[in-house]
Design a protein around this nucleic acid. Sequence first.
DNA 1: GAAGATTGACACGTCAATCTTT
DNA 2: AAAGATTGACGTGTCAATCTTC
Lengths: 163, 163
Amino acid sequence: MGERGDLPLLQDPRLTTMGLLLETQSGVRAIVESDLEEHGVTASAFEVLIRLARSPDHGLRMTELAAQSTLSNSGLTRVVDRLGEAGYVDRIQHEQDRRVFHAVITDAGLALLHKVLPSHLATVDEALTGVLDPEELAAFVAALRKIRRVVKPGADPALTART
Amino acid sequence: MGERGDLPLLQDPRLTTMGLLLETQSGVRAIVESDLEEHGVTASAFEVLIRLARSPDHGLRMTELAAQSTLSNSGLTRVVDRLGEAGYVDRIQHEQDRRVFHAVITDAGLALLHKVLPSHLATVDEALTGVLDPEELAAFVAALRKIRRVVKPGADPALTART
DNA sequence: GAAGATTGACACGTCAATCTTT
DNA sequence: AAAGATTGACGTGTCAATCTTC
């Protein structure tokens, strides 16, 4: 036998699962990012643009955008800076409350998405959605939702109830 | 109706799945990293230490270690630098081929893992494995393996066949 | 004085170039 | 000249401090 069993905790299956999640996601991410960057878009930039495009009025307040995205508040500022310089996003100051800024995707930004999406979707399909068959995929997505509800409660759509 | 439907590709379910994977993993990772860092270990450092501890002789060549981990070759050099300075890892030059170095976890490194693991496992359980019930978890892990086989072929245990 | 957003200082990881050994 | 590993220059994101508006 090898030297592997000397610390029983090292054999814990939770460690394996965690490792698997890390490796898998980093693998998928590497492939998808590489495709995006061939088209001149950073992963973070793409994430922001997509969220803006899918929002009503094509815009969101900085804070909300940060909460929805993978980025911190200040990280988002930086990304929007770059997107702004490139002409893909505008910053619009709120009229009533002038502390608030909205990031709004421009026509150029929408055009950029338009250009990138076909290849992006194909890549996602190759590296992720197309790998599982439909029932597996459905179960996988359901599991992800369940986990997200725990680790990122803010993003849960079930909480959007108004009152 | 809102402004959401103006670009049909934006509604593609593959986009949703991809976003879900990103958010979920970043959420889990944030929680787990925060726990590790309270105990004075970086996520990358932990990843490296765990892999070394689980390897025969408690060591691996730099290149192999990089291939197995989330890090690039040079990124790994940097992490091992820090771990070395802290006394958790030794670099050992190969006797026959002196281009090759092995990173080997020290007793202090093993002790560190020992100290950190209980809390880490509990955190992983809270944020990931404990969220799903057993059948769900099994299916989830199976799906991850399937995806990893595609996006990171090198890491597949089925390829470890000898000859 | 607290909320919204930005900035400065810094830590980390990557790519391309380099050094050493084969 | 190719393989293994490291280093220099750089881009990106974070935390804490700051500025502005409420």
